[in-house]
Write a protein that binds this DNA or RNA. Structure first.
Length: 752
RNA sequence: GGGCCCGUAGCCUAGCCAGGAUAGGGCGCCGGCCUUCUAAGCCGGAGACCCGGGGUUCGAAUCCCCGCGGGCCCGCCA
């Protein structure tokens, strides 16, 4: 196409073909779809050339005619499916022969060549996609859900592109958070409290984790506040003195008033709760007095006020945080009274708890058999809950890789050894640190990796000899390449860990694993924000993936029934088969869940209001379109179209060959156009990692399909050729949509 | 404080990297369409000085500079 335009432009403009080709390469000239069909199908803006030639506006049309003539008389015309060309307002617009494109594409898809071609891209090369990898301490929440959906979708995309994909879940069982949970669990089991059968297992552990954490953190803050309280008393006394001093200087009565208030406040010993109220009261009084005084008069007082605020702000902040824990505690204790009973009894001194947790971590790292058993059992239990949830949304991992496994431990030691022989290693009181700042100054790869960011120091071993998450992550990366045989690794990990991921890459590179570093890709995604609900896993406030799916089931059922009641059935609308109805509702709920979590660019924050799920029904919408397409084919052929795809393909190719002239209506052209973009979408997403584009493609196809469906009859079309063309279009759409559903793991529905 | 990302109708979002003709969608709102392949649909309408200000260009939502507003990261945490 570009050649065709190069040829004709060069003829008409008298510029060499090389130069024109160069303009195309530099994208000074670009072929793009026209804004409206009256202007043709594609167009090129020629203003650049027009200005270069300094053509006055009234000579444009002469030039344009020249270009059009050159194009239409050349033999490129036929090869590029061009049927017509026109010059308007400095644009060269081209009409395409959809008839031939339609024939070629139908054949391409129905014979399966399209899919073979896509498969040839990966050529069976092994790729590892690590995703989800949530800490096994509480149920998966919507944030983990986003990770899962993005990860599994990307993995499926790579499968369609012919890669040998392995989906792995990395179990972070060696971190502090799991140790906190294990500590809570051990206290409970010592007192005879075991997981409740009435609650999904990961949800039960989630409460245990949150309560354990809350009781410890609350205790710490309480201690801190009590200690602070003494200092705050001094601050208030000092303030009282300062105010008195100030009054003696300037003699302003309101200052004396203030002094009395402060003096009063400093007398009695206060509990932290009163103290909070008192500070706020004094603060208000200060503000009030400042307002009464003129700028000149308030200058000195302002200084005292600022000082007072500075001195007390830490206390206020801590107190607020403390209250949040108290609130969280109250919320959770009602849910599992027996758990709360034991934990609140046992966790008295946060320091003792901390000590015990540290001890657990050390023992686990040393592979103490009893402690190891406890960690394994706890994490496995929670993972059991994960598996159930993941199964609901169609995700099954090939493997769960434990951070504590022998392989990772072994490789972690190897990483440390190897690090010692790199030029960027720093030893500080027995700690092993990679100086990435220095590396960035001397090593091109590391510098480019971090760009403007500060690489920082990457600690591989603490002074006490234990390793860190990052160290084990480096080891795990080597594991993926070496043991799993990956040629490329994608880590679906939240954006907040972008720096750590870069450090891992840098470490791999510096350790001599240049290739691994290159082939480790961080597929990063941003957080999920809920409106009117701030999630805090440390305080046990999470909107779980299970809840999201359940909420969707409710929305979907309500939506469907309300529609039936309004329409044919009235209040007496009868559900034919309850079981089937439930299964359909579940499928739709899953489709909506996945679609919601996939709907926007992973790199942008996904925000939605859990109470307004009925506004996010993209999943239902796609499935419904898919159902309609099937039902047309089912009616025509008399059997399940999905079970006879090859047969239908052969039949349609055969029928297509008997058609002389293919004429497409507007809505048919648009649908075809959208389908044509399928291949490009897949390849783009592989590169850009924007998994949301897959959903967008599916939605675009559905939109065009719905319009086509509404506008043109298929089965009842009298003209045989038109009927066949439309049947083919329906089949093509169904097939492409099926592929997209498989990639996004939206459940497939036959009927509703 | 330093770095990265983001800012498009009441709300959410596409387009931005590779500048082009009327800024696409969705939710919500208003009005139409179920005896015709399943109305979870379709059609029509109202609603946007593309955060502000400069610059580059024949042409800027898009590129550059300066602001403003929001998020994230800067641990011997994970």
């Amino acid at each position: 196409m570009i050649e065709a335009l190069t040829y004709s432009l060069s003829r008409a403009a008298g510029i060499s073909r090389e130069e024109i080709r160069d303009l195309f390469n530099k994208l000074k000239l670009k072929i793009s779809p026209t804004p409206s069909p009256e202007l043709g199908d594609y167009g090129v803006a020629l203003h650049y050339i027009l200005h270069r030639k300094k053509l006055p506006r009234d000579e444009w049309s002469v030039f344009g005619r020249g270009v059009v003539e050159a194009l239409m008389t050349s033999d490129y015309r036929d090869r590029c499916y061009i049927v017509k060309a026109e010059f308007t307002n400095g644009y060269l617009n081209i009409w395409i022969d959809y008839s031939r494109i339609f024939r070629d594409y139908a054949d391409y898809v129905l014979t399966g060549r399209l899919f073979e071609e896509l498969k040839s891209r990966g050529r069976g090369r092994r790729v590892v996609v690590e995703h989800t990898s949530a800490n096994p301490i509480h149920p998966l929440h919507v944030g983990s859900g986003r990770n899962t959906v993005i990860g599994s979708t990307f993995a499926n995309l790579l499968r369609k592109l012919g890669y040998d994909v392995r989906e792995h879940f990395y179990v972070d069982d060696m971190g502090r958070q799991v140790a906190v949970l294990v500590y809570g669990v051990s206290l409970l089991s010592r007192n005879g409290v075991e997981p409740s059968p009435d609650r999904k297992i990961d949800h039960w552990y989630g409460i245990v984790y949150a309560l354990t954490n809350i009781l410890i953190e609350k205790g710490k803050l309480e201690k801190k506040l009590v200690e602070e309280a003494a200092r705050i008393h001094d601050v208030i006394s000092d303030a009282a003195e300062k105010l008195l001093g100030l009054y003696e200087v300037n003699g302003l009565a309101p200052i004396y008033e203030l002094h009395v208030s402060f003096k009063n406040a400093s007398w009695k010993k206060r509990y932290i709760h009163d103290l909070y109220q008192i500070i706020r009261k004094l603060d208000r009084l200060l503000a009030k007095t400042l307002k009464r005084l003129s700028d000149e008069e308030s200058k000195d007082l302002m200084e005292i006020a600022d000082w007072f605020r500075r001195e007390t702000s830490g206390f206020l902040e801590d107190y607020r945080e403390y209250m949040e824990y108290v609130e969280a505690e109250n919320r959770l204790r009602i849910l599992e009274p027996s758990v709360y009973g034991v934990l609140s009894e046992e966790i008295i001194d946060p320091l003792i708890a901390e000590e015990a947790i540290g001890e657990l971590m050390r023992k686990y790292e040393e592979e103490d058999p009893i402690v190891s058993e406890l960690f394994r059992k706890t994490a496995s239990d929670v993972l059991e809950g994960f598996r159930e949830t993941l199964g609901r949304i169609g995700v099954v991992f090939d493997e769960y890789d434990w951070e504590s496994s022998r392989e990772i431990r072994g490789l972690t030691r190897h990483v440390l050894e190897r690090a010692l022989s790199t030029p960027y290693v720093v030893l500080e009181d027995n700690a092993v640190i990679l100086d990435l700042d220095k590396a960035a100054r001397e090593d091109d790869y590391v510098r480019k990796l971090f760009g403007g960011e500060e690489p920082g120091r990457f600690v591989l071993r603490r002074s006490d000899g234990t390793t860190l998450y990052g160290t084990r992550d480096v080891a795990y990366s080597i594991y993926k390449f070496e043991k799993l045989g990956a040629e490329k690794v994608y880590n679906v990990i939240a954006h907040e860990q972008a720096r750590e991921q870069k450090q891992v890459k840098a470490a791999l590179h510096l350790l001599g694993y240049h290739e691994y570093a290159e082939k480790l890709v961080h597929l990063d995604y941003e957080m999920v924000n809920l409106k009117g609900f701030s999630m805090s896993s440390r305080r046990g406030r999470i909107y779980t993936l299970d809840e999201l799916i359940d909420d969707y089931v409710e929305v979907v059922v309500r939506d469907y029934l309300e529609n039936k009641i309004r329409g044919v059935g009235g209040l007496k609308y009868r559900i034919e088969n309850i079981e089937e109805f439930q299964s359909t509702a579940e499928k739709l709920a899953v489709a909506n869940t996945r679609a919601l979590l996939l709907s926007i660019d992973p790199r942008k924050t996904l925000a939605f209001d859990p109470s307004k799920l009925q506004e996010h029904l993209e999943g239902s919408w796609i499935l419904y379109t898919y159902v309609r397409l099937q039902s047309i084919l089912r009616k025509h052929y008399g059997y399940e179209p999905l079970e006879h795809l090859e047969e239908i393909g052969r039949d349609l190719i055969d029928k297509l060959s008997s058609i002389k002239e293919v004429f497409l209506e507007k809505s048919e052209k648009e649908l075809l156009e959208s389908l044509l973009g399928y291949q490009e979408t897949l390849l783009t997403v592989e590169e850009s990692l924007e998994t949301n584009k897959l959903l967008e493609k599916a939605m675009d196809i559905c939109m065009k399909a719905n319009k086509f469906y509404e506008e043109l009859p298929v089965l009842s079309e009298k003209d045989r050729d038109k009927r066949i063309i439309r049947l083919i279009l329906v089949a093509l759409t169904m097939i492409i949509l099926k592929e997209l559903l498989e990639i996004m793991k939206l459940p497939k529905l036959k009927v509703v």
